[in-house]
Computed example of a mutant assay.
Amino acid sequence: MKQIAFACALALAAPLAVSLPLTLMAPAAARAAEKLPLSAISAYLNGITTAKSSFTQINDDGSLSTGQLFLKRPGRARFQYDPPSGAAVIVGAGAVVIHDPKSNQPPESYPLSRTPLSIILASHVDLGRANMVVGHDFDGTATIVTAQDPDHPDAGSIQLMFTAAPVELRKWVIEDASGARTTVILGALETGMELPGSLFTSGGGGVPSNLR
Rank of each mutant, 00 (worst) to 15 (best):
Y44E: 06
Y44P: 13
L45E: 02
L45N: 06
L45D: 02
L45K: 04
N46I: 13
N46E: 10
G47D: 01
I48W: 14
I48F: 08
I48D: 12
T49D: 13
T49R: 15
T50N: 03
T50C: 07
A51C: 08
A51Q: 10
A51H: 11
A51T: 08
A51Y: 07
A51W: 04
K52F: 11
K52I: 04
K52N: 14
K52V: 11
K52L: 11
S53V: 07
S53Y: 04
S53F: 02
S54D: 15
S54E: 15
S54F: 13
S54K: 08
S54Q: 08
F55N: 12
T56R: 14
Q57C: 05
Q57R: 13
Q57I: 03
Q57A: 05
Q57S: 01
I58S: 07
N59C: 10
N59G: 12
N59P: 14
D60K: 08
D60Q: 14
D60S: 14
D60W: 12
D61M: 03
D61K: 04
D61N: 11
D61Y: 11
G62C: 15
G62S: 12
G62F: 04
S63H: 06
L64T: 12
L64I: 14
L64G: 13
L64K: 15
L64E: 15
L64D: 09
S65R: 09
S65P: 03
S65C: 05
T66E: 01
T66A: 12
T66P: 05
T66R: 06
T66D: 13
G67V: 00
Q68C: 07
Q68M: 11
Q68E: 03
Q68L: 14
L69I: 10
L69P: 12
L69G: 15
F70M: 09
F70Q: 03
L71T: 06
L71S: 13
L71Y: 01
K72D: 12
K72A: 08
R73F: 09
R73G: 03
R73K: 08
P74G: 00
P74W: 08
G75A: 10
G75P: 06
R76G: 00
R76Y: 03
R76C: 11
R76Q: 10
R76H: 05
R76P: 04
A77H: 01
A77W: 00
A77I: 00
A77E: 02
R78C: 01
R78H: 07
R78T: 04
R78F: 06
F79K: 07
F79N: 04
F79A: 12
F79L: 14
F79W: 08
Q80W: 08
Q80K: 13
Y81M: 07
Y81C: 01
Y81V: 07
D82E: 09
D82P: 04
P83N: 03
P83K: 12
P83A: 13
P84M: 09
P84W: 08
P84D: 06
P84L: 02
P84Q: 06
P84R: 04
S85Y: 03
S85V: 06
G86A: 07
G86F: 03
G86I: 01
G86Y: 00
A87F: 12
A87G: 00
A88S: 14
A88G: 00
I90T: 01
I90S: 01
V91C: 03
G94T: 02
G94A: 11
